[in-house]
Write a protein that binds this DNA or RNA. Sequence first.
DNA 1: GTCTATAGTAGGATAGAC
DNA 2: GTCTATCCTACTATAGAC
Lengths: 216, 216
Amino acid sequence: MPRTGAKGSSKGSSSEDTKARIIAAARTSLRTDGIMGASARAIARHGDFNQALIFYHFGSLNDLFVAALDQLSAERTDRYADRLTGVGSLADIVEIAGELHLEELQDGHIAILAQLLASVATEPDLREPLRERFQPWADTVEAALTEALADSPYVTLVPTADLAYLIVSVFIGLELMLGLEDDAAGRDKQLFTTLTALARILEAMLSMMPTPPAAD
Amino acid sequence: MPRTGAKGSSKGSSSEDTKARIIAAARTSLRTDGIMGASARAIARHGDFNQALIFYHFGSLNDLFVAALDQLSAERTDRYADRLTGVGSLADIVEIAGELHLEELQDGHIAILAQLLASVATEPDLREPLRERFQPWADTVEAALTEALADSPYVTLVPTADLAYLIVSVFIGLELMLGLEDDAAGRDKQLFTTLTALARILEAMLSMMPTPPAAD
DNA sequence: GTCTATAGTAGGATAGAC
DNA sequence: GTCTATCCTACTATAGAC
């Protein structure tokens, strides 16, 4: 096992540096080759290093994939939180979600998530590690929902945890469905434009309601 | 290539019969082993036949998967249409969608769809065949949406094609996300209960509106 | 139409030189 | 820590016996 911690000198070829290169190559491979094509050899080709390094630094491909997801989660949930904090209305949140989704789609981040999720069917050992690492995503979305609804009288009516789970599911499902499209970005924009418009109509209706409706 | 068409006698061991057994085994393997585990050998094991038969009857694994999807699409979109025709309200449609999703989840039909969609990243040749075969799903959902909204004054406001696409995406995304859960069925029920409740609130609000709101 | 046998390839992972 | 070389396994697909 390679030792951890920063080096005294600023030498560029440290162990941590190599691990980072391997993780970057794994992400590229998952994104472009899919989980079925992301073999040790394919990953090594993307990063231009030796295939055996993967096993020296990470032990197994699955452990490498988990490390890659760790890095991705940390990066992206931060960014989500940045963009989503301080958003006050439902329609605004949908609109920003659309922008985020388009970015993520084009950068291929969601592709990585979808491919890893699909691999759980074949690699049961990945289930627990993936579950832990998907929770922050749902939490970030839920926090944004809660904040956006904070000054609405309807907050208590909305089960934000369930909605957050559904929204994450939409992101994943859209990624796979849009993989069939010729113009995925265009279709994605159109879909979120539709959703934003519906959210604005909903808001208009809410503003016309005299008092919060009873929850059945 | 095996000849097609029905036999004169009712002999059970015809070519078509074998092809059906192979397709059934492919579906089982996709469902339980995932796309990464659904090798010719694994499929043959599920159906208890010789691995070489797959190539004799279908030519390649990808062609077998497409045939399996064909069969699944025909079966299930019929069933969807049966259950969804004549449903008059939005909340009812959501409720029935929840029942259907739970059935499909437990029977593993959506798992097959999700696994095939994920494989497109690695197998570009599957993209076109899959796109053609996913269209009926979206069409069925759209038809149900259109029918459910038929006597509402808001029909023209709702882009049913986009909504249908999103709903299919939710089905796919949920399948993958629920693959991480210990109690997938329970979580699924809970999510659709939430959605149904929200749909009922929306309906109540709509019934209180004096006139259709302008579309921005 | 179904079988056995096998060719040919690619994969995960490790040993051992450097 | 990184490389080459390799083991072993599994895979797709085909050839040829039956």
